Simulated scan of single mutants.
Amino acid sequence: MITEIEVDGVGTMRHLNNWQIVAIRKMADPKRRAIAELAFGLGMTVRQFQGLSISHQNAAREAHNRLYSPEAFRLPNPKNAPVRLPQRYERVSDEKMATMGAELLAIKAKLPRGHFGVWVEEKSGITYSQAQRFMKTAGTRNRSLQSQANSV
């Protein structure tokens, strides 16, 4: 997953945070909103972004489009085959729940803040509450394994 892209001569394009998104939504002028999304992604003001050369602005637009493309949010497949997700109302063993939870925790760590819930609902095929339950099981299992290792 891509979280930032270096734009030559300009800076690093990053995902917007919640404060930036709210500030953009409050802008009345739609043209200024479009520029603000690019500027804030680079850590600039709208005026600073407008002061850039046309080639730098186009490079920033290209980086923004790559950063927010569906391919940028696609996570690479792990070397091991992914665990099959349960069907609705299917019983899942604690071992399988912990394995899926560990995979979900790894995915959550790679995604930007606030994107995991959306990813679970749209991409995983399970509900957010199921994901939370699986991750909790994985955390409990890891803690019990650590306590066993410490007692030995």
Score class of each variant (00 low, 15 high):
P78R: 06
A34M: 12
V46E: 09
R91T: 10
E62G: 05
K79I: 14
Q48I: 01
L85E: 07
S55Y: 04
L85K: 12
H64T: 06
M97N: 08
Q57W: 10
L104C: 04
E103V: 10
R74W: 10
R84L: 01
S69L: 02
H56I: 04
Q48F: 01
N77Q: 13
G43F: 03
A59N: 11
K79S: 15
A98Y: 00
P82N: 02
V46Q: 04
A63N: 04
G41W: 09
A106I: 03
D94K: 09
A102L: 14
G41C: 07
R33K: 07
A102K: 15
P86N: 11
Q87F: 03
A34D: 15
G101K: 06
P86E: 03
E103M: 14
M44H: 00
E90F: 11
G41L: 11
G41R: 09
V83L: 15
A106Q: 06
S93Q: 02
K79W: 11
K31H: 11
N80A: 15
V46Y: 02
L67E: 13
E103H: 09
A81I: 07
F40Q: 00
K96W: 02
R88M: 11
R47E: 13
L67D: 13
L104H: 00
M100G: 09
I54M: 12
A102N: 07
A81Q: 08
N80S: 12
Q57P: 12
Y68E: 05
M97C: 11
E71M: 05
R74F: 10
A39D: 01
N80V: 15
F40C: 04
R84V: 01
F40W: 05
N77G: 10
P82C: 05
R32V: 08
M44L: 12
R66Q: 10
A81V: 06
K96M: 12
A59V: 06
I54F: 13
R88C: 07
L38Y: 05
I35F: 05
S53A: 08
H56Y: 05
N77A: 14
R84I: 00
M97E: 11
N80Y: 15
A39H: 03
R66K: 15
S53F: 04
E71N: 01
A59T: 08
H56P: 01
L52Y: 05
R74K: 14
I35Y: 07
N77M: 15
R84H: 03
Y68F: 12
A59E: 08
A81C: 00
H64C: 09
R47H: 02
T45G: 00
M100V: 09
Y68C: 08
Q50G: 01
G41H: 05
A102Q: 13
A59F: 07
G101H: 09
K31Q: 08
P76M: 05
E71S: 08
H64M: 14
S69V: 01
R66T: 05
N58Q: 14
R91W: 03
E37L: 02
N80H: 13
P82V: 11
E103Q: 14
A36N: 04
N80P: 01
R33V: 00
D94C: 01
V92A: 04
L85Q: 10
V46H: 08
E71H: 02
R74Q: 15
L52H: 06
L104V: 09
R91I: 12
P82G: 01
N77C: 13
F49S: 01
A72C: 12
L52W: 10
M97T: 12
K79G: 15
H56Q: 15
R84T: 08
L42I: 03
